[in-house]
Amino acid sequence: MTSFLSVPAVSGGPIPNALFSLKTPSIQTLSISTHTPSPTFHFNPNRLAIRSSYADAGVRDDSRSSTIDVVADVRSERIVVLGGSGFVGSAISKAAVSKGIEVISLSRSGRPTYPDAWVDQVTWVSGDVFNVNWDEVLVGATAVVSTLGGFGSEEQMKRINGEANVVAVNAAKEYGIPKFILISVHDYNLPQFLLTNGYFTGKRKAESEVLSKYPGSGIVLRPGFIYGKRRVDGFEIPLDLVGEPAERILKAIENFTKPLSSLPASDLLLAPPVSVDDVASAVINGVTDDDFFGVFTIDQIKEAAEKVRA
């Protein structure tokens, strides 16, 4: 289910009294008053505005003195990527940096060892959500993006896929972060006994927490198999050599495979892979578009990615 909310982002009235404002937690205000020929500056750390009044500056309307109030908002994004040095997390961090978004990464491994230029533009914090000092990472953030997840024993999967994300969601909510974006997993049509393992139950628990704490701004992305060039212990695994051809083939024959989608476990073969770059671009769309929230399927992730690249 996908939710959409249309809210007028700009409100205005006829000049000479016009006010344009966009509410965001990371906006600064500078006020300029020209009641006399020498302007007076007022600084407010939460908004950036320019206000100009010419009533006493020798500029007058035929019927009355003119006053023009204009608030010019400058929005800057600062995101926290949980697991930012991992396969998906690093792609998100790289995409965000390329869009001028400030990035803080929290992961156990901290800064990656490879020498890519974008790495120097990210603030790397070593740690995990169960022990981190949130003051070091969440203050001033406009969104939290969680890529936390993994496989292991039943208890390990419940902890990293579920509990870790629940902790992160509640910390973000407590610090007043306006958005939370979760990288989850496709809703596979597997037999119920397979969906009760720790991986899937953990992911769904995390989804419920995001959607309940952030009903109007929480984002859950549900990709299937994610492909790209994955670095593991200094080696690069080219998952795109498998994922990209598979995605193209399934796209070409989707009209023939749709009738098969109702068969149990058919998603294991028929759910199209998703490029890690598409996932990253969809996240950027979620960070910058306030009308983008809810649960997003594989096709919707790709559509969101196209909006960013357009």
Rank of each mutant, 00 (worst) to 15 (best):
K173Y: 11
V145S: 01
L190H: 10
R204K: 15
T123M: 08
G152C: 04
F180W: 10
N165D: 02
Q192F: 15
Y175L: 10
S126V: 09
T201A: 06
T142R: 01
A143C: 11
T196Q: 15
G149Q: 06
G162M: 08
M157A: 08
S153E: 11
N165K: 02
E174F: 11
V166N: 03
N133K: 13
T147P: 05
E174W: 02
F180N: 04
F200M: 06
D120F: 14
L194N: 12
V129P: 06
N197I: 12
E174H: 13
G150T: 05
D128R: 05
D187K: 08
G150D: 09
A171C: 12
R204A: 05
V139L: 14
G149H: 03
Q192C: 15
G127Q: 05
G202D: 05
Q121S: 14
Y175I: 08
E174M: 11
D135Y: 09
F200L: 05
N189S: 07
N133C: 14
P178E: 05
I160N: 02
F180Q: 03
V169K: 00
N170A: 10
W134T: 07
V185D: 03
I181F: 03
I177L: 09
N189M: 10
G127I: 08
N165Y: 04
E163Y: 11
T123H: 09
Q192H: 15
I183V: 15
I160G: 01
D135G: 04
E136L: 15
F151D: 11
E163Q: 13
Y188T: 07
Y188E: 06
E154R: 08
T201G: 10
N189A: 08
P191I: 09
A143R: 02
N161K: 09
S208C: 14
S153Q: 08
M157Q: 13
G150M: 05
V139A: 10
F180C: 04
A171R: 03
D135M: 09
V185G: 01
V169D: 00
L148M: 07
E209I: 11
Y188L: 14
N165Q: 09
N165C: 06
N161E: 06
D187A: 06
T142Y: 00
F180S: 01
S184Q: 04
A141P: 03
G152W: 06
P191E: 10
L190I: 13
A143K: 00
